[in-house]
Design a protein around this nucleic acid. Sequence first.
RNA 1: GGGCGAUUGGCUCAGUGGUUAGAGCACGCGGUUCACAUCCGCGGGGUCACUGGUUCGAAUCCAGUAUCGCCCACCA
Length: 910
Amino acid sequence: MTDLPKTYTPRDVEGAIYERWLAADVFAPDGAGSTADPALPPFTIIQPPPNVTGSLHLGHAQRTAVEDLLVRHARMRGHRTLFLPGLDHASIAAQFVLDGIIAKEGESRQSLGRERYLERMRAFSDSTKPVMLAQQRRVGASADWGRLRYTMDDGSARSVRVAFERLYRDGLAYRTEALVNWCPGCRTSVSDLEVIPTPETGTLWSVRYHLIDEATGEPSPDEGIVVATTRPETILGDVAVAVHPEDERYRTLVGRRVRIPFVDRDVPIIADDVVDRTFGTGAVKITPAHDQADHATGKRHGLPMPTVLADDATVTNTGTRFDGLDRYEARALIVAELAAQGDLVDQTAHEMIIGRCQRSNDVLEPRLKTQWFIRTGPLAERALDATRSGRTRILPERFEKTWEHWLTDIRDWNVSRQLWWGHRIPAWYCPDGHVTVSSEPDGPTACEVCGRTAAELQQDPDIFDTWFSSGLWPFSTLGWPDDTADYRTYYPTSVMETGYDIIFFWVARMMMLGLHLTDHEPFHTIYLSGLIRDPEGQKMSKTKGNVVDPLGVIDDTGADALRFAVIHGTAAGQDQRFGRTKLENARNFANKLWNATRFVVGARPPTIPAGGERRLPAEAHLGPAERWILSRASASVEAVDDAMADYAFGEVTRVLYDAIWNEFCDWGLELAKVRLADESLPAETREATWWALIEALDTYLRLLHPVMPFVTEELWGAIPHRASDPGLLIVARWPGLTARDRQVEAEVEAILGLVRGLRNARAESRVEAGTWLRTEVVVPAAMGPTFEALRPAVERLARARPLDRRLTREALGQGSPAGDGVLSVIAGELEALAYRDGGPGDGATRDAERARLERELAEARGWLQGARARLANEAFIAKAPPNVVDGARAREAELADQVARLEDRLADLE
RNA sequence: GGGCGAUUGGCUCAGUGGUUAGAGCACGCGGUUCACAUCCGCGGGGUCACUGGUUCGAAUCCAGUAUCGCCCACCA
């Protein structure tokens, strides 16, 4: 037991606690401090690895809070619990960051060259890595740091090579020339998911192409066909003009040829039903190397596919004066020249969707490139089967539809990137173009087709999409492809917690690759968190400047408050706005808990030795207040267990907030104070009261620990423990269910209701706060013993003294005629009169009292009417379940009684 | 063009068929006695977006409408 400082200062608490956990070796499932029950199945969460060069933002903190909550809960329930932390090399994102840094030094990727650039990147990531890890610790992640993994470490590299080779051998990885999304800024291809469709107002130009006069072979000055395009610069790559086969306007033109301006290429007019007759002129220019739809058309018609844009998006290879010009300069020139020669027929503003690079925001260019692809069809089938069969569950469930839709229409995954920072594709090419894929660290010894020696082979310069190594994360981190002890023990993992924004990028790919490579679903539950937004509902982003740094928040209010704030009042998959008030509320709650504990610890009866072992409250000495406190704690265990089973973490905190603040502190401690201070009671009774408080507090600290680990650990250290308890709360056992005492709960709550009623009447009648009022109360006989036990507490909490108990309702007010200044309270079955002896006595207070009672009466009558209407409905009696009907009848009787009593009281006032 | 979500008190949000819909913040009134003013007590405030349906009973289920947001999608 430690002494608690008077003031709660999270900063003083949190660092020291984290060190104690580390010293006790309690994070690792097989650590020296573990108290796990080996008979229980292990629980595994592999952390979604944050980008090594990034910085922790609120989203990370929220993720970590949820993951750590699950982990701590499982750990307390006795499972061997592995929370495996990691970092992601984040290929393109990291390069983007580093490019920005070296640009300030006047350098570039190209100027440094591959080797120096990579050296620079390693140094950079080495410097950011410890920062990221320290941030995780500040949030309180109970991760097994000894198993820390990195997507660029040797183990991950080997997994990547082995995975790729297997996919290749299984026919699921292939290399082909295809149209890919090319980012001229990043100088790499990107996957379809990295294309951000962006609405923009462009221009739709109508351009006349002249028909070839087949007699002369020259373009006719008068005959032409007008095509509509938003990209005039691609005219240079046109190989055909397409019209709809049933378009009467152009029927006779199909089969004829037109001359493409500038390049002077004669190309056919073809018919294809992809053409929308109603759009533009109904005639479409076909540029197969620079447009998705045109590419498909070109393939159908066996058209050539000239590339006219270079990697930096300048015009190339056209043999025209436009070569070397940027795509937009070329566009402007081409439009101007077409206009000059009279072939620009029209131009109109046009709303369209432009694909931009997720990373650089450049306009992406469809380009023909030879690239590696993953054949996703068969992989997606198995992923779908996993969720359809229920072997893997997605929470919230509605995301299963999104999942279905995406995996059903999935396209092959372009996995090669023309970047440097990442895993090099383990494919080698011989001079004859044969492909050898090898997972050997040093590559193949010979071409597997023609046997040429390794010296003649060249490795593919490209690297993998960063999500390829991420896709292997749940098992590459556990030793796969080796059959390690960790892999056998902790795979498949338990829960994958991440943001719904990367369900396709990451979750789907882990599922696809995991199923193919390991034959197991990599996790049984996918919990998708919502996104954190700013108080205005905007996505947080550096460019908007609305990013909240969690470390600043932690410095300010503590990691516990931050964790509580991001969990409280949220639901799975639901975005949340994050603002100061939530945080303050959470901080206040931690402070409340601190002070409550400090009070309990300080209220120890002198007959109990300090530092002694925990004792159970002596059953015989428990009063109704103590039984109520214990029963409510048990109710909280039930409610938290239910919420945890539903992954309803917002509900967990709601339950605990209410139970701790509004029940335990507001009533439990107040009731206990009276008993603890009552010198007339035997020592055993006061001891039992204190032990009951300890018991309930202990339960609440355990229940709250997964959410607010630091403050609960610190406070738990200040209360007596059981002999069976370990030294730290983090490895203590989750509370078990104990029997509720519903009788006591009902009786105590009825009496608390009376206290509320008295307080309300006093406040409304403006009785000075400090004034004691002589009060008479009538309590049903059955509740007598409970009332007598609580009488001193009622006196104090309602400032009702002397408090006389009358045995019957008729006896109420006898001998003390109702007059000016009497307050009537009806609280359920209980009833009271409070006398303002020596009060104002001018009749005004009597009028106010009458008005108050009349308001209450009107309200009660309204409810009574509603209850009667319900019961008058025969269909209700006949069809509603009996317990509901019984409940309605009881309610009606209660209301009728209340109305009658209010009427009596009013009559007395006359 | 498809799909999904949101719409509940002034604000931010819980609440997936059962009495009288909750919380935090904000607001009003009152509180310096020994856990806490990061607090305590009391209170005001909502026809649960709209329309229709199912049901004895709907914030909750169904259909449609509106507004906002997100995801997917090769009309140049």
